[in-house]
Design a protein around this nucleic acid. Structure first.
Lengths: 120, 120
DNA sequence: ATCGTCTATCGCCGATAGACGATGAATACC
DNA sequence: GGTATTCATCGTCTATCGGCGATAGACGAT
């Protein structure tokens, strides 16, 4: 039997450059993005450039502790980079990781939408 | 001030055809995909074509009630279509919705990665 | 040394997710 | 009619999420 499935597209069937994520890794990154507040945080940091927690708190309407936890989720998922700059923290968007998520989900969708090609 | 943010890319800034999702809608669809089992289910249904719950249960290793709930999550998110065919249910991949998620997240990523263009 | 600021973490809470088995409804088959 | 099959839903259990306030640690400024 041919065990090729679209899910394999996540692991990189030599279709694209180097983008490859396991099912669990992809799910983890999607989960990090699957929250309106975190989408907003990513969006804001993209606009602000490298910034600290306080800057983000000033943008979104939540308590500092809540924002700090959302930032941690995004850092753990690899979507933000983190650096300790003295008193402050510096969060910066990881463009490559975000682009990778987009690329992998796009490849996954394409593999799902053209299933008849899976036996090529 | 210019209030344009990458998050607005989700709502469709006339960049692409007709793809447009609110932040909450995008988050909801991402959340539906943000689970390894559901990624696998989507992948399997893409390969099998229209199929019933029992078929999916045979593919993934979980109880029928668990699979049924995962299918419901995917249907509620609009990623699967549902039809009651007599004794069985018929689940089918919603290619358009899946492609839309991929397109929106790609546009979001692009807007985040090129923030200097937000003032164009 | 002390004060103020910024941050991460802790504890707490209600709500939700995700797994399961059991049950009942609807259908197909004999 | 009676039985088997398929499925959705219910209840339960546990773990996690997502919010908050409080607090402690690190740092800069005075």
């Amino acid at each position: 039997m041919n065990t090729s499935h679209p899910i394999d597209a996540c692991r990189g069937p030599a279709t694209a450059e180097h983008v490859a994520l396991s099912s669990g890794e992809l799910a983890a990154k999607l989960a990090a993005l699957a929250h309106p507040t975190r989408l907003e945080i990513v969006s804001r940091i993209a606009g602000l450039g490298p910034c600290c927690c306080k800057d983000v708190v000033a943008c979104v309407g939540f308590a500092q502790s809540t924002v700090s936890q959302h930032l941690k989720v995004l850092v753990d998922a690899g979507l933000l980079s983190f650096a300790n700059k003295g008193q402050r923290s510096c969060y910066e968007l990881n463009h490559e990781a975000l682009a990778e998520v987009a690329a992998v989900i796009t490849r996954f969708a394409e593999a799902c939408c053209v299933p008849q090609l899976k036996d090529q």
